[in-house]
Design a protein around this nucleic acid. Structure first.
Lengths: 225, 225
DNA sequence: GAGTACGCATGAAAATTTTGATCGTGGAAG
DNA sequence: CTTCCACGATCAAAATTTTCATGCGTACTC
């Protein structure tokens, strides 16, 4: 599997190259948009990872150049912290996924693998919904009945887990491993507290209640029957 | 590679089995000490993972039984949160490493691989030292000139990184990826702040200073020449 | 049917981590 | 030798997460 990385910051570029090489990919690294586009058009890649901010021509232009030349390889964007619009724009221009800096390397690897597996079939432009609750995975934004809800990262991760598997009872052990990356430790109640905070933001003052406790098992998110 | 897990809590047991199976190991899982010991003596394993707290006979007794029977396989202990003495006892009885619950699965996997690679040659009973600073990796405890220093987990992780590679300049990008599991993001100064806090605890009021800034590069921990 | 134990809920305090603003300083440029 | 600037240092405040003590309700026991 051959991957093209276009990234001007040497630190990030080298880091990505090293990590992905270790993961068994063949990497070409371009330091600016022009080089990147040139490589993209002359070589064959299974995936391109483009930084949006590049000297010379930016990531979008590279993407457009690639598409204009009829190249169909999937493209993954790296965008800066808060530039939500960049992400949307990127996806509209035909990127397949995006990643917000700073990101965990494991996260990048997961995305890379997903995109490669799909072979560029589905875009990662996703919403999750339950009743009047809507979770925007791209903007990392949540609202209920049109009201914006601010969640911290742990809260978001927890809600995302519950939403992705709506109607299923999520055991506490799964929550612990997914959201905290740790095994269950009986003498802490972080999960309960986190659920409490989440309920306060997501369920308090709204109907129907969405987060339900299943005694001895875990939690479910569903519109109760 | 065949691994024996002896763990009574079904959640943890299943979680471990699943995770390690996915990582390509063959797993046998025993639910109590007697079963575990029996399996350990009748089958051949490359590694045993023992919970200390077990119904019937506990982890230590299982270990002793294994050693008495002349089995040399490496043993990794799972111990409860604060029972430091358990860890020390385990290592003294001939365990090869230990892991404190709750732990990240990635952590377990790393330890498993290390222990298997070493093939039970070296015990993980480690201290790191620099001048009069001593870092006890087992007890997760630090002192300087005999005075106990309390570090938070991030602080500890940062100091451990610097200590493990004493004298080397650790680039910020490496710190970011090791301690925060994230790529470098130029508009945050978490690293500087963390270094500050660490210095306040480890260097302020002591001589010689151990943590040095290398402009444009990163940080080194060393006894200055 | 009362007693009781367990699992979860809750609120508040404590601990930790991150952000944001401002200050200092070494080293390059002139 | 000065000036300037980028890089870090530092401090305080804000945000987030964890801990701890206590309360409540359900289900099980007798």
């Amino acid at each position: 599997m051959k991957i093209l990385i276009v990234e001007d910051e040497p630190k990030i570029g080298n880091y990505l190259r090293q990590g992905l090489t270790e993961a068994g990919f063949i990497i070409d690294l371009a330091r600016d948009g022009l080089d990147g586009l040139h490589l993209a058009l002359t070589e064959d890649y299974n995936l391109a990872i483009l930084d949006v901010m590049l000297p010379g021509i930016d990531g979008w232009e590279v993407l457009q150049g690639i598409r204009r030349a009829g190249k169909e390889m999937p493209v993954l964007f790296l965008t800066a912290r808060d530039s939500v619009d960049d992400r949307v724009k990127g996806l509209e221009l035909g990127a397949d996924d995006y990643l917000v800096k700073p990101f965990a390397f494991s996260e990048l690897l997961a995305r890379v693998r997903t995109v490669l597996r799909r072979g560029g079939m589905t875009k990662e432009y996703e919403f999750l919904r339950a009743a009047d609750l809507e979770l925007d995975l791209i903007r990392h934004r949540v609202d209920r009945s049109g009201q914006k809800i601010n969640l911290t990262s742990k809260e978001f991760a927890l809600l995302e887990l519950l939403m992705r598997r709506q109607g299923e009872v999520i055991p506490r052990s799964l929550i612990a491993s997914q959201v905290w990356d740790m095994n269950f430790d009986s003498d802490t109640n972080v999960i309960e507290v986190a659920i409490r905070r989440l309920r306060a933001k997501v369920d308090d003052g709204f109907e129907p209640k969405l987060i339900h406790t299943i005694r001895g098992m875990g939690y479910v998110l569903e519109v109760a029957e």
